[in-house]
Simulated assay, not measured.
Amino acid sequence: MNRLIDLLRTYGPILGMILVLAIVYLLKPSFLSPNNVANVLRQSTILIILALGLTVVMSMRGVDLSIAQVADAAGLIAAIAIINHYPIWVAFAAPVAFGVIIGAVNAVQMAYLGIPAIIGTLGMMFVIRSGELMATNGSEPQILFTLPRGLTAPFLFLGQGSVGGIGALIILATVVFLFVFTLMRYTPFARQARAVGNNVRAAFLAGIDIRMVFGAGFVVASTLAAIAGVALVSRTGIAMPRGAEPYLLDAFAAAYLGTLASRRGEMNVFGTLLGALFIAFIGNGLTILGMGAPWRYAFNGGLILLAMAVGGLKRKE
């Protein structure tokens, strides 16, 4: 009996999420049709990648509010490169390089200059947003789907193509997940990041370069955000300022929901994947049920509060 109670305490929230999805399915059986499931999996790629990067930072008690803006700018860079007939590799490499640079700047600010992460990344968010507006003459969209297919096909394949019947976006999300899972589970960085997240002073006394480790988290988050931005533009065929902003709240919700898959309410990569998939499916379900964005935002906000409350109870046990 005690074991059953312990299991319910640990995995009850996850069972609750499954129950919510089951209710949507009962109301709209088309919710779990193969075509709809495949569509949601493709759409969830951007959220999964953003949330995984955010999880790396938050596992060390940091936060990065600039990831959505980095994704926006990276997508714009890729679109501008395509429109101006740069080689296709530039459309992929330049945005990722941009993400690395922004991550490095964030790392210097937060890890070495001591600027609070919430302030530093908020400032970076506004700086990038201003740059986007200047680069696009206000907020002029960069449209790719109207260009000759021969020019855009290699770039759009990432977001719209498939390999062996599996969407390229799903493959991308799988690769990124395996990379982050390995990074945060089987590498020296994983042990160091865990130590920094648990107790910074103890990590310092143990000889860990806490500044480098903390800063590396921001580099990973921004790099993944840039990849997500390129994937988003490749899927939609259009890039515009603030196009990725709606994903920021979803990414936070996914990361916090991921803590429900941990016995101690900690950030974890596998939990974040489950949280992102749940957010994607419930968003799709609410749309099918005719409930718009306000309901989805309210739902995500409530999930964040629930995850934080449950996490707090787990840590007190």
Score class of each variant (00 low, 15 high):
residue 40 V to A: 06
residue 157 F to W: 15
residue 193 A to F: 11
residue 4 L to C: 02
residue 246 P to T: 05
residue 203 A to G: 13
residue 143 I to S: 04
residue 121 T to N: 02
residue 80 I to D: 07
residue 247 Y to Q: 09
residue 286 L to A: 13
residue 192 Q to S: 14
residue 311 G to S: 15
residue 161 G to V: 06
residue 188 P to S: 08
residue 203 A to Q: 05
residue 31 F to L: 08
residue 31 F to A: 13
residue 51 A to P: 10
residue 51 A to N: 07
residue 307 A to D: 08
residue 15 L to M: 04
residue 51 A to W: 00
residue 298 A to K: 01
residue 214 F to W: 02
residue 265 G to S: 11
residue 238 I to L: 09
residue 73 A to M: 15
residue 134 M to I: 13
residue 260 L to N: 12
residue 114 G to C: 11
residue 78 A to Q: 01
residue 114 G to T: 14
residue 302 G to T: 12
residue 277 L to H: 03
residue 31 F to G: 03
residue 204 F to G: 00
residue 272 T to D: 05
residue 251 A to D: 00
residue 84 N to Q: 14
residue 111 A to N: 11
residue 57 V to Q: 00
residue 86 Y to A: 13
residue 137 N to P: 01
residue 111 A to P: 11
residue 261 A to N: 01
residue 218 F to N: 04
residue 106 N to V: 13
residue 65 L to K: 00
residue 206 A to K: 02
residue 174 T to F: 14
residue 165 G to S: 10
residue 292 G to T: 09
residue 280 A to C: 04
residue 12 G to S: 03
residue 97 A to E: 01
residue 26 L to G: 11
residue 262 S to Q: 06
residue 116 P to R: 05
residue 29 P to A: 11
residue 222 S to E: 04
residue 107 A to L: 03
residue 285 G to A: 04
residue 144 L to M: 10
residue 249 L to H: 08
residue 312 G to F: 10
residue 279 I to A: 07
residue 55 T to F: 04
residue 58 M to T: 13
residue 70 V to T: 12
residue 70 V to S: 05
residue 35 N to D: 15
residue 291 M to T: 09
residue 98 F to Q: 05
residue 176 V to F: 02
residue 120 G to L: 02
residue 270 F to M: 14
residue 114 G to A: 06
residue 197 G to Q: 09
residue 256 Y to Q: 08
residue 30 S to I: 12
residue 227 I to V: 15
residue 227 I to Y: 04
residue 301 G to E: 03
residue 147 L to M: 15
residue 251 A to Y: 00
residue 139 S to H: 00
residue 121 T to E: 04
residue 122 L to R: 04
residue 29 P to C: 11
residue 60 M to G: 00
residue 84 N to S: 12
residue 2 N to S: 13
